[in-house]
């Protein structure tokens, strides 16, 4: 082992820590983004033309905001958002500080995915619920989020995988995690075994998320 990946063995402790940092960043930003993304996604679906709470102004403002945030390249967002990060966290470096750009980088993407997932819910079923006297809130919770659950889970998996990708980019501003190790140690010091091992661990994380996600989707789907 020492012969194949000498540098990795030498910094085993750092690798374990970096892996936990990546998991921490992914999980924490996923949780916050899930809440924000669901809220915004549902808001888009219900306020859009023909929606159950149609509201042209709200829809067009939120829609444009989501597009705007989605258009900023993440590497630039990391830098641009730093004053806000400083204000919220107190610092702009470190794992926790990276949560702010990660959340702003991923939740608009997730909101859009949620919107698309919910648009796939059969409009006839929504109409049926309205005809049965369901309130907008009941329609959101008992129809949209429930009928759309399998698709919501599917887009959540895609989002978490994208998010793992973003956490590695956050390494550029010293967030810690596997991306940080791969670039700032492996790449900078020409220690290729470190870069390669970081990649392998990330791939394992991605596959684990994908497999777990697929298993959950299979369990909730009844079509």
């Amino acid at each position: 082992m020492t012969a194949i990946i000498p540098n990795v063995i030498a910094m085993k402790g750092e690798f374990i820590q970096a892996t936990w940092e990546t998991i921490y960043m992914t999980l924490m930003s996923a949780i916050v983004s899930a809440v924000l993304g669901l809220l915004v996604g549902v808001l888009l679906v219900v306020t859009q033309p023909g929606g159950i709470l149609e509201d042209k102004l709200t829809y067009s403002v939120v829609d444009k905001l989501v597009n705007l945030l989605r258009s900023i390249p993440f590497i630039i967002l990391l830098a641009v958002i730093s004053p806000l990060t400083k204000f919220l966290i107190g610092t702009t470096v470190g794992t926790t500080a990276s949560l702010v750009p990660l959340i702003f980088g991923i939740f608009p993407f997730y909101a859009r995915q949620i919107q698309n997932a919910l648009l796939d819910v059969d409009h006839g079923v929504i109409e049926a619920a309205e005809s049965m006297g369901s309130s907008p809130l009941e329609i959101i919770f008992r129809i949209y989020l429930r009928e759309g659950l399998a698709d919501i889970l599917r887009v959540s998996i895609v989002t978490v995988i994208s998010l793992i990708g973003l956490t590695t980019m956050a390494g550029a501003i010293g967030s810690g995690g596997l991306g940080d190790v791969a670039i700032n140690i492996g790449y900078a010091r020409f220690e290729n075994d470190i870069t390669f091992t970081a990649m392998i661990i990330i791939l394992v994380l991605v596959f684990a998320v994908q497999l777990f996600g697929d298993w959950v989707v299979r369990r909730v789907e009844h079509q």
Partner: peptide, 30 residues
């Protein structure tokens, strides 16, 4: 209006059942 709608039920060409609920769950929905 929602109360009034409960007294006017509707059935549709494409049934509009909720696929995530069982037959029993669909009937219980209202």
């Amino acid at each position: 209006l929602r109360q009034a709608r409960k007294k006017v039920s509707m059935i549709f060409q494409h049934f509009n059942l909720m696929k995530s609920r069982t037959v029993q769950g669909n009937v219980e929905y209202p």
